[in-house]
Nucleic acid binder design. Structure first.
Lengths: 176, 176
DNA sequence: AAGCCCATGTAACTGGTTACATGATTCT
DNA sequence: AGAATCATGTAACCAGTTACATGGGCTT
């Protein structure tokens, strides 16, 4: 149940409302870390409050509630952080497709692999721009965003390199 | 609905039973590409047969049915292979944890990050061995296993490098 | 007053996991 | 004969998505 720990972590960093949490997921976490929509977040916050992991530390306009973690919550977060990674089932459509390349004919294979490499390289270029924008942004706390962007950069570079490597390997055994 | 296309791809490569497909997921796809259990596979095969994408090409002992793709199925597979990647919501517990590193105290942060980098490096070492085993295996068709292993190698190397980089960045702002 | 963002919730549905259930064949 | 593996299915449950629904407050 990683959603619970993602929320716990965000609240441990900064107490905030469900609405703020939703935006954080959208803006920084959803690219490479974790996704959640408000319809999942609000009920989970309620369950966590029932479980004594979070508490309401303030109420604002429009019925908004600011949540913070309790001591129990912080202990649970730490326990989870140090627990072994749950080996969640893989779901990677990019890898799946490269796996199934052999079902295409040679021309299709080359075109598609080239295509996939190029798309990844475009992502890399986009992320380089995003990073320089983040680094020039004077407002301080863009650390999460910077980490995520760096991961993305490296990840798409990996995809591109790997796709090109696969093409080379295919070429060795089935030369034009 | 990638499960459908994974099945279509595996059947396009080799006609086989639901049981065989289940084993293929367990053995080669589940590491980095896609996961599925038999309880998901059998009903999906039935739906695909209703949709005319696959057909029963043979029946064996114990009521086993061998499926193969139809022309429609192969066309649908190719269409999907060339369609844009569906940007599925990210679910990466490793990245999530590194994201939440700053919620720990400095000693914990260092220990955990070191830990995560080391675990990734162990995976790298394991995959190097797996690769040399694959390359020495005389039985021909290990190409796709080799591709998957290469992806894994590069991916865990990325995790390790990125984990070490994040630690360095954290150190810059919270010096010892 | 209109439009936009803030802010919270519920309901229906889908994809996927875990558990339940059964029987045939092969191997030792 | 007993154990392991082959082989297929269903049912209950869980996590997550999409759609539905409501209202407050701020800006122009």
């Amino acid at each position: 149940m990683s959603l619970r720990h993602a929320l716990l972590g965000l609240l441990a960093d900064t107490p905030q409302t469900g609405y703020d949490l939703t935006k954080q997921f959208e803006q920084s976490l959803s690219d490479h870390a974790w996704s959640a929509s408000h319809s999942q977040i609000y009920p989970e916050l309620k369950r966590m409050m029932d479980g004594g992991l979070v508490e309401v530390v303030g109420e604002g306009a429009r019925g908004s509630k600011t949540y913070g973690v309790t001591d129990d919550g912080r202990a649970e977060l730490r326990r989870w952080m140090f627990s072994p990674l749950s080996d969640a089932p893989a779901r990677n459509e990019f890898v799946l497709r490269l796996f199934l390349l052999s079902t295409l004919d040679l021309a299709d294979t080359r075109e598609l692999a080239e295509n996939m490499a190029r798309t990844s390289e475009e992502e890399v270029a986009g992320l380089r721009e995003a990073i320089s924008r983040i680094e020039q942004d004077p407002s301080g706390d863009s650390r999460y965003a910077r980490f995520a962007a760096e991961f993305g950069l490296r990840y798409y570079q990996l995809q591109a390199d790997w796709a090109r490597w696969v093409v080379t390997e295919l070429g060795k055994h089935r030369p034009a």
